[in-house]
Amino acid sequence: MRHWSALGAFTLWLREITRFRRQRSRVIGSFLQPLVFWLLLGAGLNASFRPAGMPAGINYFQYLYPGFIVLVLLFTAIFSTISTVEDRREGFLQGVLVAPISRQMIVIGQAMGGTTLAWIPSCIFLVLAPLAGIKLTLTAVVVSALIMAIIAFSLTCIGLIIAWRIESTQGFHAIMNLILIPIWLLSGAFWPLSGAPAAVGWLMRLDPLTYGVAALRAALYFGHPSGAANSLPSVIPSTLIASTFALTMYLLAARVASRATSY
């Protein structure tokens, strides 16, 4: 039984990959949009803007980079889960729900699918880092890619928690804008925690995405002379917090999915 369920989760993952391959525009769009944002914001703010607490030897272009990798992850991970809303009432998921596979396994398949879909474009973004003047070492790439996968998994699970709960895609967009954009803004993508006013600093500390961004930032600057010289938690504890968050989000998503009935 367990073996069958794993095969079921694998097949759900494979389906996401097959669909993604057939929609090239989705791949390109998912990483072009953050790329353009990064270029415009970076170019506009680089000359005049230097938030307090930014690590020495890094310009604002470079500072924004990890945050925009996370934005790529955010867009693709979340949008890959939207289909769950309609799929479950009038699509492919109807058939999955009457198959002998547990909801926990369905969520694993979906979460792995969404994670892979988000991870691929963000890796393209990652290897463009030298264009921003960030030196990449092999360690930096491998560790960053791993952290990106953890962040992608947790974001996909957040998307699934909402997608399994609500009945309409409009509702989905509303909730996404209300929750995810603030989470991203407060994650340290735009300004460092150390320079933020006390109240904002606390919000940032409470934001689970902060630790993902911090881990990624630390990993990315491995090759940088100044290192991760800032007040952010170092790479290992941050990664641990981000992993715990990802696991919690998965458990929540599995729970929500198990309780969802199709009225």
Partner: peptide, 12 residues
């Protein structure tokens, strides 16, 4: 089970 709305994936 056969559903009223397609449960096959049209993109596959």
């Amino acid at each position: 089970v056969v559903f009223q709305h397609p449960s096959i994936d049209l993109k596959l």
